[in-house]
């Protein structure tokens, strides 16, 4: 093995892989059609049903139910339904306060964020939402993570 190829083998390979996988994949193509997702979630009615099941789970979930104490359930249900409807490309407008404002001072932990994500996923499963549609919705929620956690 020549000196050059030994150097290539030991140094360039790892760096290349790190850069390609982490940089390049930021812009992976996704077959994502905006209004398709809204329909796959069952439109506003389907989304309202998902959010309702999610709320039942949250109430039972000791990791997070304390943080939801005192929340106006009807208003929360309407706002979250509107928000997911809008995120999925549906004809709704979220009229609640900004994500940063809503979660300000709550010091949301990773544990709590994961718990809500889990309750949403299980609610989607209960409503028979296909895996691909679940993933597409999660793809649009994930960017809210730093704002919700106040990072």
């Amino acid at each position: 093995m020549t000196k050059f190829s030994a150097f290539y083998r030991s140094t360039t390979g790892p760096l290349l892989i790190l850069l390609l996988t982490l940089g390049g994949c930021q812009n992976l193509p996704s077959s994502d059609n905006t209004s398709d997702l809204y329909e796959q979630l069952g439109e506003r009615k389907g989304i309202a049903s998902i959010v309702e099941d999610m709320l039942y789970r949250i109430v039972e979930d000791d990791r997070i139910n304390q943080a939801f104490k005192g929340v106006d359930v009807v208003q929360f249900h309407r706002n979250l339904t509107d928000q997911l409807c809008q995120l999925s490309g549906g004809p709704c407008t979220y009229n609640g306060r900004s994500m940063r404002e809503v979660h300000d001072g709550m010091a949301i932990t990773d544990t709590q964020f994961n718990a809500v994500a889990e309750d949403l996923i299980l609610a989607m499963e209960k409503n028979g939402i296909p895996t691909a549609a679940q993933n597409r919705l999660l793809a649009r929620i994930a960017p809210l993570y730093p704002t919700i956690r106040g990072l």
């Binding site: 790892p14 760096l15 996988t21 994949c25 996704s30 077959s31 296909p130 691909a132 597409r136």
Partner: peptide, 18 residues
């Protein structure tokens, strides 16, 4: 990193280690 809905709506997990 996990890329949500990256391939036909499926999540893709990519790992690189040096």
């Amino acid at each position: 990193k996990l890329f949500f809905a990256a391939i036909m709506g499926r999540n893709l997990l990519v790992n690189a280690t040096a």
